[in-house]
Design a binder for these strands. Sequence first.
DNA 1: TAGGTATGAGACAGACCTGTCTCATCACCG
DNA 2: CGGTGATGAGACAGGTCTGTCTCATACCTA
Lengths: 194, 194
Amino acid sequence: MNAMTPSPTTNKRQHVVDTAYALFKRDGFHATGIDRIIAEADIAKMTMYRHFPSKDELIVEVLEHRARRFERQLDRLAQEVATPEQKIGKIFDWHERWFRSADFHGCLFAHALAEFGDPGHPVFKAVARQKNGLKRRMQSILEEVMPPGQAESAAAALLMLIEGATLMAQMGQPAIDGARKAAAAIIASARTPQ
Amino acid sequence: MNAMTPSPTTNKRQHVVDTAYALFKRDGFHATGIDRIIAEADIAKMTMYRHFPSKDELIVEVLEHRARRFERQLDRLAQEVATPEQKIGKIFDWHERWFRSADFHGCLFAHALAEFGDPGHPVFKAVARQKNGLKRRMQSILEEVMPPGQAESAAAALLMLIEGATLMAQMGQPAIDGARKAAAAIIASARTPQ
DNA sequence: TAGGTATGAGACAGACCTGTCTCATCACCG
DNA sequence: CGGTGATGAGACAGGTCTGTCTCATACCTA
């Protein structure tokens, strides 16, 4: 296997992940059958099952791939600005662009949580990892300007706002501006408690 | 049909709704089959299909029943207190108790939105009605102490907080206190803009 | 050229899905 | 007693689900 030419295995595997992502996003997890995925990806069923031992593991793979991509994008955005307020602002910017994108269908992780509510299920755990990652990111940003305790609860509040804004955006109600103002009020309040 | 004795039709119908609610809440909508519902409710399949023309309509009925129940409970709680802050506080109280309840599995409406993402689908519309109802309720409470424009965006922010808190509660992360503090900051900020 | 690997194509199993149909039964009511 | 409406029980159709299996076919490399 030449190291310069990408492995065909990797290509097929990623192609399945991308195709499954698009279908899961639009139609949901249980409503999207394996047959639909392989038809859309134009691959044989066995090709998929050779890469992923089960549909559940494919779902986890899709979620983890999207989570990594999300983290990379936020990393990049954070480097563009200096102050904690600006970094938080960039996170809201990211979501605002996402809400306006043509194929926005809500948060895939929240949807996964809705369909896999068992805390022991691998999909549930993958969702928890992603949400905790975002919360930790905001928390460490806020710790630059407030004590850790304040930063923890403020980060939780910001995460709630973002999740809520995503849900409202899915219902066609633009609320990112309100979320932004509320976030500013929360941060200001945490900066100067009482 | 005697008006004093409740119609057996109504009883069976409600029994199906209640049983379906418990199963949808725990396992999701697509993952819960008709066969499971009628087995758990201990009724014949035809009895169900005589009351509900399709599974989708049963889902809508379940959602609407829960929405009516929710509205009644909030109506009652609102009458116990006087100030807008207290009324909003009662809404957060309700959610706090809900999060602590033994069979809490997240918001059924949010889950329905995850599985029925088509805005034209009756289930989607039922979800939008419920969320808009809660937002309107908070908005009219807030209009007692701030201009309508401020009340609208503050209500949207509070709704986002509540939805986000529900999602975090489902992931086992208690965040209602943080949401409460954030709500106070939002309302204070809207009361005295700038 | 020979061999190993990835893939394609599709049959197949066994279960589950929604929704319809028939026939029997039971309760109530005039 | 006779009739009516709600219900029970279960077969049935037609489709879809996940996952496994076999066999043929490319393709790259040694």
